[in-house]
Nucleic acid binder design. Sequence first.
DNA 1: AGCGGAGGTTTACGCCGTGTCAACCAACGA
DNA 2: TCGTTGGTTGACACGGCGTAAACCTCCGCT
Lengths: 235, 235
Amino acid sequence: MSTNEGSTNEGSTNEGSTDEGSTNEGSTDEGSTGGEYGDPATRTRLLDAAWTEIAEQGAGLTLGAVATRAGVSRQALYLHFGDRAGLLVALVQHMDESLDLGPSLAAVQAASDGPSLIEALMRLNASFWRHVLPVARVLESSQDTDDALGAAWRERMTFRQATFRGMIETLDERGDLAVAWTVDDAAGVLYAVAHFDTWRELVVRLAWSDDRYVDVMSRTLSTALLSDQARSGVT
Amino acid sequence: MSTNEGSTNEGSTNEGSTDEGSTNEGSTDEGSTGGEYGDPATRTRLLDAAWTEIAEQGAGLTLGAVATRAGVSRQALYLHFGDRAGLLVALVQHMDESLDLGPSLAAVQAASDGPSLIEALMRLNASFWRHVLPVARVLESSQDTDDALGAAWRERMTFRQATFRGMIETLDERGDLAVAWTVDDAAGVLYAVAHFDTWRELVVRLAWSDDRYVDVMSRTLSTALLSDQARSGVT
DNA sequence: AGCGGAGGTTTACGCCGTGTCAACCAACGA
DNA sequence: TCGTTGGTTGACACGGCGTAAACCTCCGCT
C-alpha cells in the first residue's frame, strides 16, 4: 500500500526528461532505493531528527543540529545524504512512507455521497497539514535552490494532484459533479484550494479551528462543485 | 575599545522563545517614516535592485548582488537598512507604495453586481500575483527568521484580509451573499483562496492561463458565496 | 588468529554570505 | 575653511556548507 495506490497514474501534465546529468558526479541518490549508504536505522534516525528539527527551527535548520539530535556526527549525515538538498529530498520520500495515507484515502473515496466525500477529504487534509506544515514550507521554499529537490517536491505534488483528480473522477462517475464543470477544472480547483497555504492562512494566521476550516471549506467546495441533486442527497 | 572581541552580542540568531506578546513596544525598527539614512534616491534604487534581484534569484538573494545592481557598495546597503531583514521589511512597504492598488480596488468595488465584482477581483488578483510572486515567496518564507520582518509581512496580509472583508461586506449589504454565510466566514474563504499559492499552483504548476484561473476561480467563488438571485442577475 | 570491510568518528580546511568596524573621501553649504 | 552628509575601501569575525584524510571499532569470514 503506502504511497503508490496506482489510481489514475496517467501523469498527463509532467513528463520524464527530468533534466538529468546535473552537476554532481557522485550518486546523489536517484529516486530509486538503490545503494544507499550505511545503516538504515541511522538513516531513519537522521530523517526523524531532521523532521523534528524543522518542526522546531523551521527554515533555520542546520545540518549540525540534525546530526547532533540524531546522536551522530555531522559527517555521517553527509555520508548518508550527500548534502543538504539530498537530505531534504530523502525527507520528501520519508514523509511519504511514515505517514501512510493509503487507508485514509480509501476511506474518503468510499464516502457514501458527494458532500460527505468532500468533508472527509477536507478533514483528512486538515490533519495532514497540521502534521506536515513546517516541513512542507521548508521544502516548498527550498525547491528552486536545487534541481533534484525541486523535482522531488514537484513529483510529490503531482501525485497529490492525481489523487485529488481521482476523487473528482469518482464524483463525476456518480454524476455528482455540477454540469458546468470539467473534471480537469474541478480537479485543479480542489487541488489548489486544498493546498497547505489555504489551511495555514485560515488556521494559523486567522486562528480558525480545524473544525471551522473543515466546515467552511467543505461548504465552499460542495456548493461550487456538486450538482444540486448531489448536494441535497438525492442518489 | 578597538579590535575587541565579543562586543557584538547581537548574534543569538532567533532561538525558540515563544514569541507571544508579539511585537515588543514598537521601537524595533527605528520608527516609521522618520529618520532614514542617506539619499532617498539611493534607497529607492536599492529597493528596486532588491526587487529585480529577487525576481531573478528568488531566495538565493545576496546583499552583495543587490548593492552591485544598485551601483552602490554593500556597506551602503547596511547603512540604509541595517541588515538583510531590514531590507526585506522596507521592501514590503516599498511594494505597497510602488504598486498603487487603490484605484484598481475602487474599480472592483464599484462593480455592478456580485459575479462581476468577484470576477474583477480575481482578475486583479491574478495580475497582482504575477508581479509580486517571487518577492512574496521570499517574504513569506523568511518571515519567521526575523521578528520585525514577520510583523511587517503579517501586517501586510492583515491589511489584505481587511480589504477582502470590505468586498464581502459590500456584497452583504447588497444582499448578494448566500444566506448560509457569515461575513467572517466568507471573508476568510475569499482571502485564503485568493492567496498567492492558489494562483501559483494553478498558473505556475499546472500551467493554467490567467484567464482560466480567473474563470474557474470566479465560478467557484460566485457559486459558493453568492445567493441564487445575485448569481442570476436579479437585483 | 588474523583480515577486511562496513559504518562510522575527529580534525581540519576552503568557500561564501552576513554583519561590523575603521579609515578615508568627495561634494556642498555656511 | 570647516564640518556634515553620503557615501567608499578594505579588513575581519562568525557561522554554515561541503570535502578530505586519517583513524577507530565492531562483525563476519576463513
